[in-house]
């Protein structure tokens, strides 16, 4: 390789190529190879296989509905897990409010009842530590899911898909389902909202 070729190769290293560009480059190389010459014929076969492999990968990705994974399943799973953290934090807060009230009542009682109550409340405080631990573990899982989501999106983009057209389809499909489990935050209706809705039919 001469100096000019080497410089060109160095420049190419820093560039990211789309699937189309890679296939195009391989096809150009294929076109310039003499298929009747035995050593280059082998190279021709290898490159042909590579083109087929890339094209197959693209169709397999489409078949796997990988866009659904990156644009729908992973974000939904991450949102659900975030909601678990919020709900356990809120429930733990309620438990601790109750414990603090019990402690005040225990202070007005005499031993051994007050001691027994204080010990029981201590055990509840200790057990409430689960929320911190599970919260940290779930946050770690959410980060991992987001990392996977980013990588899957990169792969999809590299193979020339765009997620947008499929995303609207996914949302429409999902809206049709009545089995969506507990709602998250702002999407959820309160009992008041539901009572108002029911009352509007009267």
């Amino acid at each position: 390789m001469d100096a000019q070729q080497q410089a060109a190769a160095e420049n190419l290293k820093d560039r990211a190529y789309t699937r189309k560009e890679v296939v195009e480059i391989i096809r150009t190389v294929l076109g310039s190879i003499d298929k009747n010459n035995e050593p280059t014929a082998k190279l021709h076969n290898e490159l042909s296989t590579l083109v087929s492999y890339i094209e197959n990968m693209r169709s397999e990705l489409a078949h796997m509905r990988s866009i659904e994974i990156s644009h729908h399943h992973i974000p939904t799973a991450a949102d659900e897990l975030d909601a678990v953290v919020e709900e356990t934090a809120s429930a733990t807060g309620t438990i601790m409010d109750a414990c603090e009230k019990i402690e005040k009542v225990a202070d007005s009682l005499t031993s051994p009842v007050s001691d027994d109550l204080a010990n029981a409340v201590t055990s509840i405080y200790e057990a409430c530590g689960f929320q911190d631990i599970t919260g940290q573990r779930i946050t770690k899982v959410v980060k991992t899911l987001k990392h996977i989501e980013a990588k899957v999106t990169e792969i999809i983009n590299a193979f020339g898909h765009s997620g947008e057209e499929l995303e609207s389809k996914i949302t429409d499909n999902d809206k049709k389902s009545l089995l969506q489990g507990p709602q998250i935050g702002s999407e959820a209706s309160s009992q008041d909202d539901i009572d108002k809705l029911l009352a509007s039919f009267d």
Binding site: M96, E126, Q131
Partner: peptide
């Protein structure tokens, strides 16, 4: 010091005891 309010409350309550 903790980013989980629950843990702050647990530690503060245990300290109080």
């Amino acid at each position: 010091v903790d980013d989980y309010q629950t843990m702050i409350r647990i530690i503060k309550n245990l300290l109080k005891q």
